[in-house]
């Protein structure tokens, strides 16, 4: 497949995803929008396999088949009332995938060596950080909705200071990764602190506000995908990830408005609706 053709298909698929999202935001066309998005993801996979000449990579199909089996079992066996926590769980799993792609490209496995090592390092670390924040945040969200974790917002002493500390550590790790070749230390720090940050960030949100947090994390996992795409040099992944990240953020704001809450209040654990159960708010 020629490069020009690949770029054109990337544009077409991005437009398809965009129209899928916009169709999904109207009641009448929502089902069609969902199908359109699903088909464009499928086409994206086929095109990527063709373009990178990986069509004969048999292990890919085994892994994908496993994932499809697990995913469809989840999707069709879970009770309707457990949907929100399932969405949170699925979202976390997607974050994990981005983080793993970041890990592999950071230690230089499975990446075509290119002439911009600093860019690859920085984007890999970013993908790990954002992906793992998504994973641990989503797991906490799913746990809260499933009533494994306490529903009320858990606010530690000096919670904001701790969270800010994590952010500073993570940012300095990302900057450090541009100048060092000692990737293992960078890997260890980014894995530990991004997981902790995701936990600290989500545990402070009340159970009733979880849908908004999930929406925010969902936007983050789109961003994680886009950044992982930068690390492995995959144009289609960057563009679709960017679309999902941004529209997810906008959806988060819409949801905040609909619930008449401000995003920062929710993230700081100032809950006003803690007496309601999360299901009532979601349904």
């Amino acid at each position: 497949m020629s490069e020009t053709l690949y770029y054109i298909i990337c544009i077409i698929l991005s437009v398809a995803v965009l129209s899928g999202i916009s169709l999904m935001s109207k009641v009448k066309t929502a089902v069609a929008g969902n199908l359109l998005s699903a088909v464009s993801v499928l086409l994206g996979i086929v095109i990527t396999l063709l373009y990178k000449e990986l069509f004969s990579g048999w292990t890919i199909y085994i892994f994908m088949l496993l994932g499809i089996l697990i995913g469809s079992t989840f999707a069709y066996r879970v009770k309707m009332i457990e949907m929100p926590q399932l969405v949170a769980l699925l979202n976390g799993v997607g974050g994990l995938a981005s983080a793993l792609v970041g890990v592999l490209s950071l230690i230089g496995i499975g990446v075509v060596i290119n002439e911009y090592p600093i860019f690859v390092n920085v984007t890999s670390v970013l993908a790990i950080v954002v992906g793992l924040i998504t994973l641990s945040g989503s797991l906490v969200a799913a746990g809260k909705l499933h009533k494994i974790l306490p529903q009320k917002p858990v606010v530690w002493k000096k919670h904001s200071t701790i969270v800010t500390g994590f952010i500073i550590i993570l940012i300095s790790t990302i900057i450090y990764s541009a100048f060092t070749s000692n990737t293992l230390i960078v890997l260890a720090i980014s894995v530990v602190f991004s997981s902790l940050f995701g936990y600290a960030f989500a545990i402070r949100v009340g159970g009733a506000d979880m849908p908004i947090t999930i929406s925010l994390l969902n936007s983050l996992s789109g961003v994680a995908g886009a950044i992982a795409g930068m690390a492995v040099n995959d144009l289609m992944l960057v563009s679709i990830g960017g679309i999902v990240g941004a529209s997810g953020l906008f959806l988060t704001q819409i949801m905040c408005k609909a619930m008449n809450r401000s995003l920062s209040d929710i993230l700081l654990g100032k809950t006003s609706v803690e007496k309601k159960s999360p299901k009532e708010v979601v349904a």
Binding site: I21, M24, V41, G94, A97, N218, S221, L237
Partner: peptide
């Protein structure tokens, strides 16, 4: 649906 789309990292 967007959550499903964010699994695009599959690529």
């Amino acid at each position: 649906g967007m959550n499903a789309l964010s699994g695009i990292t599959l690529l």
